[in-house]
Design a protein around this nucleic acid. Structure first.
Length: 333
DNA sequence: TACCCGTGGAT
DNA sequence: TATCCAAGGGT
């Protein structure tokens, strides 16, 4: 039995391990700038690396810098985010570009505190930007670090609770040195992604095995403490199909709310149906916190339509929710 | 604190 | 098929 390593040793072991076994070829690791790091970190929130890569490439080609993003149309921005989910990330990213343009003349601030004031940037993302873009000291706690630390230090309790979260950030502060900052931050993420994984962790080849407290206690599979989950409700939804002259009527979804900023079939939230309606079709969709059981019914154009009619080719340049785009592609034309 | 906010990969 | 969960932040 042995205790945990001191920060210096811990740091060196991870940096050395990552030099050989870490990831070095991800698109956002090539010539990182504050902007490219910022974009990639936002896209990577709750989203797998493989999913992000093509989105990142398209984004950087269309919005190569803060100016391009700040001046882009919202529709253009949302079209680039279509399918990634959590669409407030995209709207916040553009807000951030406008904020940085106005407040900092398109130069990212240098301090963690200032970076954390950028719309959509929290404590983790601020630390990541400082680490990856500036190669300066920026503690990070994300899902990877959470898993690694909960196991390495044998931290009990649900990580999202304030007490455990505070412990995790305390360890992050204590174990983040001011040397090899970029490599260390990346090593934490790589360890979490390839060794200290949620399922079937590769303890046998882990460079921290001998001092990992969960490993010594044979509790690797039990940590971090899983959050008790509640059953998600199923909601019924009704969407309206209005077609005229080979064009389909869509409305832009308001913020806040689901699919904010995306174009969508108008939703009918009234509970009572006055008359039998012609049904175009149905679809089901699963969100992170509820299920949607939807039907789409036909209607005729009325007076006060707030949205617009679009031809099929025009739809290609809009941001639409994934299940709505799928439904339309099955039923339009 | 608890909930809101999407989608798709992995098992 | 069901469940987990993947570089979180805002309210």
């Amino acid at each position: 039995m042995t205790g945990v390593l001191q920060p210096q040793s811990f740091h060196q072991i991870l940096v050395d391990w990552a030099d050989t076994h870490g990831r070095h070829d991800l698109p956002w690791q090539q010539r990182p700038t504050p902007y490219s790091v910022h974009v990639s970190e936002i896209m990577l929130q709750q989203t797998q690396v493989a999913t992000v890569i093509p989105y990142f490439e398209r984004w950087m080609a269309s919005f190569p810098d803060l100016q391009a993003l700040a001046h882009a149309t919202e529709d253009h921005v949302m079209h680039h985010w279509q399918g990634l989910g959590y669409y407030s990330r995209a709207r916040n990213l553009q807000k951030a570009a406008q904020y940085l343009l106005e407040q900092f003349s398109a130069h990212y601030p240098r301090t963690l505190k200032q970076i954390e004031m950028i719309p959509g940037v929290g404590r983790y993302t601020a630390g990541a930007i400082v680490s990856f873009a500036y190669n300066e000291r920026g503690p990070i706690v994300d899902g990877n670090v959470r898993r690694l630390f909960c196991r390495y230090f044998a931290i009990d309790g649900v990580p999202s609770t304030s007490a455990v979260s505070r412990k995790l950030w305390d360890y992050a502060e204590q174990y983040t040195l001011d040397t090899h900052c970029r490599a260390y931050a990346q090593s934490l993420l790589d360890m979490g992604a390839t060794i200290c994984t949620a399922k079937n962790p590769a303890c046998t080849i882990c460079p921290l095995q001998t001092s990992c407290q969960a490993y010594q206690q044979q509790r690797v599979e039990q940590l971090p403490t899983p959050k008790p989950k509640k059953q998600q409700p199923t909601k019924a939804g009704r969407f309206i199909w209005i077609e005229q002259d080979q064009q389909l009527y869509l409305e832009k979804r308001p913020a806040p709310g689901i699919w904010a900023g995306l174009w969508c079939l108008p939703q009918d939230d009234s509970t009572q149906v006055l008359e039998p309606q012609i049904q175009i079709g149905t679809f089901k969709h699963v969100f992170s916190h509820y299920k949607l059981d939807a039907e789409v019914v036909q209607a005729s154009p009325s007076e006060d339509l707030k949205g617009q009619f679009f031809s099929r080719s025009q739809l290609d340049n809009l941001g639409l929710p994934t299940p709505i785009r799928a439904f339309i592609s099955r039923h339009f034309n």
